[in-house]
């Protein structure tokens, strides 16, 4: 019988963004995104929960070393996005609208290559204490 365990590591970053689709008119952007489309940006304290699922290693008892996961998320995600403007300062969102959904997908894609294929990865991202997304769903 499989003894899979999910381990979670929380990290956070603070960033500015705006929701805006350049293919839509200003009026359409306003209709879809409301005040999230305001031109001078706003921001959030993003809370990120990285979930890794697998069987504990027989030698260490770990699914993955939490410190290793923390260092990976710091290097790949937090240093990239913390105290940045997601629209202006990051390559990842040059042409991708930085919704919580898209940010979660980008973070997954940044981390996935570093995590062993035998392990499952899931991203939970809180944009506010009330809005959060999971990827993969």
């Amino acid at each position: 019988m499989s003894k899979k365990v999910a381990v979670y590591r929380k990290e956070h970053f603070n960033a500015a963004h705006r929701l805006f689709n350049p293919a839509l008119s200003a009026a359409e952007n306003d209709a879809v995104f409301g005040k999230c489309a305001l031109p001078n940006y706003h921001g959030h304290n993003y809370e990120l929960i990285v979930k890794v699922t697998g069987e504990p290693d027989p030698v260490t008892g770990y699914v993955v070393d939490m410190k290793w996961i923390s260092d990976l998320v710091q290097a790949q995600v937090v240093e990239r996005f913390d105290h940045r403007n997601l629209n202006l300062d990051t390559e990842e969102f040059r042409s991708v609208n930085p919704t919580a959904e898209n940010i979660a997908i980008v973070i997954y894609d940044l981390l996935r290559p570093h995590i062993a294929s035998k392990h499952e990865l899931q991203i939970r991202l809180y944009e506010t204490p009330r809005n959060f997304v999971d990827y993969p769903a």
Partner: peptide, 12 residues
């Protein structure tokens, strides 16, 4: 430090 970032950052 990074709080001076030219293109802003943000909070809840």
């Amino acid at each position: 430090g990074k709080c001076a970032n030219t293109n802003w950052h943000g909070h809840n």
